[in-house]
Write a protein that binds this DNA or RNA. Structure first.
Length: 733
RNA sequence: GGUGGCGUAGCUCAGUCGGUAGAGCAAGCGGCUCAUAUCCGCUCGGUCAGGGGUUCAAGUCCCUUCGCCACUACCA
């Protein structure tokens, strides 16, 4: 019996998974649990995918390191999967050191074998941030329709596809500067060259592994249309260094390293990882992913491994699910639409109930739409009305009228009479159907058949009418109950991969533990049963209304998102220190046209120098003697040779003639050194660590109706709101 | 722009190799009382998105139109 290596798609670390994302992890979990119960040696591996532009940019915005950001999200992911009872053997991270090692090794081999080529391309580059920019990080004016905020790849206004170099006045979303075209060199994996070897493998694997239909189709389309070279490097910092001269400043493109994460995460669990990953004779690899990921798993990742010329365990079964939609729309991480892992916990509905609904409706052959009405209907009708009811009515009837002990094996009308033989034939037929479905990873079909089996139990109960026969023919009635109790035992085994907690609870009613697939249909082992307790609570219509309101619609989207992320207010509190400071002297910067050098009293007793670009907007006399708002924990910076220790706050607006208007925020009522605070907060005594200018601007301050605010909260100084005298609304910097 | 997918009963979905359209829920009717207003049975319900083609036969294969969606793009 071959060992089974099971993976579910590595979730990108940068966001909180929603129910749609959870499908893969949950699917692999059922399969892994099933395999263990059937006695296969099983390993279930997953983890977070952490490298790439998205995390790097996000971390930059928040002024923390990518690793810190990833750690924060890794914890959130882990917690969600723990709550859903996912039985990973290991849930790791691609930022682990052995990931670098294995990825570099695979690259080296590809390179040695001549499957890596170099190409020169032109890319937009930001001088200010010293980085190349992805198309969507550039915005500018659309050359077709004049829309001022068109994205580098496509104008959202007129829909025309763009080349970022077409944009009029392009600007980088990262730092707001104007990017330039710059030549760079990248490495490409030569898929066309690997293709013949890939195809030999593909043909056999897709058939033997009984791949999901969408995987077969999409893969065929890819091969048919011809494979192209694909870039495997990027100009980024947050990633795996490329171990090749001339490319050492670059890192691998995430899609190249991400699938290798399956291997490296295994290696971080056990030194014996090669017994799994370099052992195709004894291991079958089952991968669970969403349909959006198919070519990476059926073409690119296998090509990477085949191209090494080494022995690797390649994909056996591909289980690629379709999409789970939400109330007629799409789940969306970026827009925050739908139910997220963290939300599911807060509903008070147990994990097994969520698992039930998601498996019962697993988007196995087509997309499925989650609706709250359907959620309630399926729980009440199927989970409770069918399965819950059979367990409850049978065990309640037994314990109420026949006591806790079951009759002996050979009592009157034994379980092996012709009548019951037929019953068990039916049961066993359905059970082997379920097992076959599960072997083919048809999880939904298997699960639905489990419920059909439960329904059969209800029907047998109903037709036997034990409430009538218990007096006229108690022996036969006892036998009926005994058979139904063994059916329930079988059901508890069959649901164990899906609803592990529930399976254990039913086992407790029957005085059993640790049953396995081999126990199915085996009529022995139960001697006493206990009175059942309610397995699942009915979901009321009001509850559903409340949940629908909470998790659908625009407001709910925002609430869900806010709960997950720190608000602007919280980020301000943690990162920005504002203090009142009195200007004691002002002079022109000798080497700059627009800069003043100000001496300020920040209450520390020591004079402090700041530099501000106010020439032309203010005269020296208009500034000196006034108290301004100082960003006091800003990292010092040299401006034309003069070190500025902090900056003053001013609102920006536009004059009637279109020129820029600068409006310094004065707080003359305050004492130098007074700490500013959010409305409702008491000013903190604690000194914050220094932040750089990018991190400061990542927390946007604005004047709204002349009042200085962050997020939706006013910032106060010495008990008064800070106001802008001239500019009513605009950014503050 | 390229690629892939989807459109079947009021709702959510099955439909294998082309062979008289299926399930669950909802709705209507009947039965039962062990069970969490639960369970069992029956009935109703479809121009298979529109059009064209191949075929003795098309939800299924081909072409086309419409609608929805996903992935992807300094080009593969």
């Amino acid at each position: 019996m071959k060992k089974r290596l099971i993976t579910s798609a590595l979730p990108y670390v940068n966001n909180i998974p929603h129910l749609g994302n959870l499908i893969q992890v949950l699917s692999a979990d059922v399969f892994a649990r099933f395999c263990r119960l059937r006695g296969y040696e099983t390993l279930y591996i997953c983890g977070t995918d952490e490298y790439g532009t998205a995390t790097e940019t996000r971390a930059r915005e928040e002024g923390i390191s990518p690793k810190e950001l990833c750690t924060r999200y890794y914890e959130i992911h882990s917690e969600i999967y723990r709550w859903f009872n996912i039985s990973f053997d290991h849930f790791g991270r691609t930022s682990a050191p052995n990931h670098t090692e294995i990825t570099q090794h695979i690259f080296q081999k590809l390179h040695e074998n001549g499957y890596v080529v170099e190409r020169e391309i032109e890319q937009l580059y930001s001088e200010a941030s010293q980085m190349f920019l992805a198309d969507r990080y550039v915005r500018g004016t659309c050359p077709h329709c004049g829309y001022a905020d068109a994205r580098g790849d496509q104008c959202e206004n007129c829909g025309k596809l763009l080349d970022p170099s077409d944009l009029i006045d392009p600007r980088s979303l990262i730092d707001n500067t104007r990017p330039v075209m710059k030549t760079t060199r990248h490495l490409y994996i030569d898929l066309p060259k690997i293709r013949p070897r890939l195809e030999v493998w593909l043909k056999v694997a897709a058939e033997e592994g009984r791949w999901a239909r969408n995987a077969v189709q999409m893969t065929q389309a890819w091969i048919r249309d011809g494979l192209k070279e694909r870039a495997i490097t990027r100009d980024l910092k947050w990633g795996i260094p490329v171990p090749l001269d001339g490319f050492r400043e670059k890192v691998f493109y995430v899609w190249f390293d991400a699938p290798i994460g399956y291997i490296s995460i295994t290696a971080s669990l056990t030194d014996n990882w090669e017994a799994w990953w370099r052992n195709p004779e004894q291991v079958d690899l089952f991968q669970f992913i969403g349909k959006d990921n198919i070519p990476f798993h059926t073409v690119i990742f296998p090509s990477s491994l085949i191209g090494t010329g080494e022995k690797w365990t390649l994909l056996h079964h591909m289980s690629s699910s379709e999409y789970l939609n939400y109330e007629g729309g799409q789940f969306s991480k970026s827009r925050g639409v739908g139910v997220f892992g963290t939300d599911a916990q807060e509903t008070g509905i147990p994990a097994d109930v969520w698992r039930f609904y998601l498996y019962y409706n697993r988007p196995e052959t087509s997309d499925f739409t989650f609706t709250w009405d359907d959620f309630r209907e399926k729980i009440n009708g199927e989970l409770i009305g069918n399965l819950g009811n059979l367990v409850n009515r049978t065990l309640a009837f037994q314990t109420k009228f026949f006591g806790n002990s079951l009759p002996e094996e050979d009592s009157a009308g034994t379980v092996t009479s012709p009548e019951w033989k037929e019953f068990w034939n039916t049961v066993r037929t359905m059970e082997s159907e379920i097992t076959d479905y599960l072997e083919g990873a048809r999880l939904r079909d298997a699960f639905r058949t489990v419920f059909a089996l439960s329904s059969y139990g209800n029907k047998v109960f109903q037709e036997a009418e034990p409430w009538k026969t218990r007096k006229e023919n108690p022996e036969a009635t006892a036998v009926l109950l005994k058979n139904l109790i063994y059916l329930i035992r079988d059901l508890s085994i069959l649901i164990a991969p899906y609803l592990p907690d529930t399976a254990v609870r039913i086992g407790e009613f029957l005085g059993l533990n640790a049953t396995t697939w081999d126990d199915l249909g085996n009529l022995g082992g139960i001697t006493t049963v206990s009175a059942p307790t309610i397995l699942f609570s009915i979901v009321e219509a009001e509850t559903i209304e409340e949940l629908r309101a909470r998790f659908s619609g625009t407001q709910a989207e925002r609430a869900a998102k806010k709960a997950a992320e720190p608000t602007m207010e919280e980020r301000f509190r943690e990162r920005v220190e504002l203090r009142a400071a009195k200007i004691t002297a002002v002079e022109r910067h000798p080497k700059a046209d627009k800069l003043f050098i100000e001496q300020v009293d920040d209450g520390s007793g020591e004079p402090r120098t700041i530099v501000s670009g106010l020439v032309g907007h203010y005269t020296e006399e208009e500034l000196v003697g006034h108290t301004i708002v100082l960003v006091s924990n800003l990292k010092p910076a040299k401006l034309r040779g003069v070190e500025s220790r902090g900056m003053l706050l001013a609102a920006e607006g536009t004059n009637e003639d279109g020129s820029k208007k600068v409006d310094v925020l004065f707080v003359d009522h305050a004492k130098p050194g007074d700490r500013l605070a959010l409305h409702g907060d008491t000013p903190s005594e604690e000194t914050l660590s220094q932040i750089d200018i990018d991190s400061f601007f990542a927390i946007p301050l604005r004047v709204k109706d002349r009042v200085l605010t962050v997020g939706d909260t006013a910032i106060e100084c010495a008990g008064q709101a800070v106001t802008a005298p001239v500019v009513p609304n605009g950014p503050v910097g």
